[in-house]
Amino acid sequence: MAGEATDPEPEPPRGELGQLLARVQGAGRHAESVSLEAILDSLGQRSFAPFLLVAGLVTLAPLIGDIPGVPTLMAALVVLAAVQLLAGREHIWLPSWLLSRRVSRARFVAVVRWMQRPAHWIDRLLKPRLTWLTRPPAHLPVAVTCLLIALAMPPMEVVPFTANGAGLALTLFALALLAHDGLMALLGYFLTFGTLALVVIGLA
């Protein structure tokens, strides 16, 4: 059909992160632009970890994460998700104005392909360990820490490289929850407080 964008078949995914990226790349497959709602729907049930993964990878990625306003938009996503998780909601609700935000399919596919390069290496590192740092009620301090990251993200847009640190921290927490890998959570905590310290120094 005229006007539809098509993509070549992605390489077979080899691990959990690779499988997630393969599903994400299929979001809005026959449209010229991709909405946040389509991306989240491609990840299945709307739980906290996919929200963190989307926000973290988008903030971390080139072509999209460096666009002014994008880190703040991802911060709004994390704040809404974290507050609802802390309030005890099992399913995350987002307003339509946020779900309807779109990016061109060409740029979206380029970013996903960029993410696929290190995905296989990351999947080899992930495994269940220190699971007491990821299983309930340990997900609550993760949510609080992610909320702190999100609240600090708007000023990060004026402090070089700190938004990338925030994106990496969110990604580590998402991977920790998805793979029950407490080591990733520990790295996320260290990176969070290091990044927040840089923000304070940069704004002082």
Score class of each variant (00 low, 15 high):
138 A>E: 06
18 G>Y: 08
43 L>K: 01
99 L>R: 10
201 I>S: 11
145 T>K: 02
160 P>R: 12
29 R>M: 02
161 F>M: 15
94 L>E: 00
97 W>H: 13
46 R>P: 05
27 A>D: 03
92 I>G: 06
137 P>C: 10
104 S>H: 14
22 A>T: 08
90 E>C: 07
52 L>T: 02
74 M>A: 05
194 G>I: 13
25 Q>M: 13
179 A>V: 08
136 P>K: 11
52 L>D: 05
115 M>R: 03
80 L>H: 08
11 E>I: 11
117 R>Q: 15
103 V>N: 00
185 A>R: 01
100 S>F: 05
141 P>C: 15
68 P>K: 07
145 T>L: 14
95 P>C: 09
143 A>G: 03
57 L>N: 03
62 P>R: 06
145 T>E: 03
113 R>C: 05
39 I>S: 08
172 L>I: 03
165 G>C: 12
54 V>K: 03
33 S>T: 15
153 M>V: 13
179 A>M: 08
74 M>W: 04
197 A>E: 12
33 S>V: 12
72 T>M: 00
180 H>C: 06
44 G>Y: 08
41 D>I: 10
115 M>L: 15
94 L>G: 00
66 D>A: 13
61 A>S: 15
17 L>I: 00
3 G>A: 06
71 P>I: 07
52 L>K: 04
88 G>V: 14
46 R>N: 02
160 P>I: 12
187 L>N: 02
192 T>D: 01
73 L>S: 11
168 L>M: 15
117 R>C: 05
159 V>T: 10
166 A>W: 00
17 L>T: 02
52 L>Y: 00
16 E>K: 13
164 N>D: 02
191 L>I: 12
107 R>A: 14
88 G>Y: 04
45 Q>Y: 09
103 V>G: 07
88 G>N: 00
